[in-house]
């Protein structure tokens, strides 16, 4: 991933692109999660041991047991548990200006959601900072319905 010198050569080469718009069915748990996102809420699911998973899943990662049908609204504010500052976003990233990938533990959740924080500046980032979602202009039921999280108090 770190670029080193390539041997020069005039061999044959050609661009090759694998491209497909996959249609993913969601099932009951992710379906509920994305439906809630579309409607402006973030929901987790409770495991049998009482922990709240966000994003929710059909099973408890600790033991494989099915989760309960108890969906719990969490956040929308949360706490940044870790972050990585992306100074030069790639084409595949959701924002075209510098931002942070972050693990965000939403209020009421026991696990952290991976998402992005649009703080404008690396200096504005800190572990433990509070963030709130900035919703997309149009929500359709997908993870990008939250366009980004932003520092709390900066609406």
């Amino acid at each position: 991933m770190e670029d080193t010198k390539s041997p020069g050569d005039d061999g044959l080469s050609a661009p090759h692109v694998l491209e497909y718009a996959y249609k993913r069915s969601l099932g009951p748990v992710l379906g509920r999660f994305f439906t809630s996102l579309r409607d402006g809420r973030i929901e987790g699911v409770r495991t049998r041991s009482g922990r709240v998973l966000v994003p929710p899943s059909e099973y408890d990662p600790e033991n494989g047991e099915a989760t309960t049908e108890d969906f719990v609204e969490v956040g929308p504010a949360g706490t940044v548990k870790s972050w990585a500052w992306v100074g030069a976003p790639r084409e595949s990233h959701p924002l075209d200006h510098p931002f942070a990938f972050a693990l965000i533990e939403l209020d009421g959740a026991d696990t952290a959601l991976m998402h992005v924080v649009d703080s404008g500046d690396e200096a504005a980032m800190a572990t433990g900072m509070r963030v709130i979602p900035r919703w997309a202009d149009e929500t359709v039921g997908r993870i990008q319905d939250i366009a980004a999280f932003i520092p709390e108090g900066r609406a």
Binding site: R24, P55, H93, P94, F101
Partner: peptide, 9 residues
């Protein structure tokens, strides 16, 4: 579902 669409490299 919840990670790849955000493009975490």
């Amino acid at each position: 579902y919840t990670m790849a669409p955000l493009g975490p490299d």
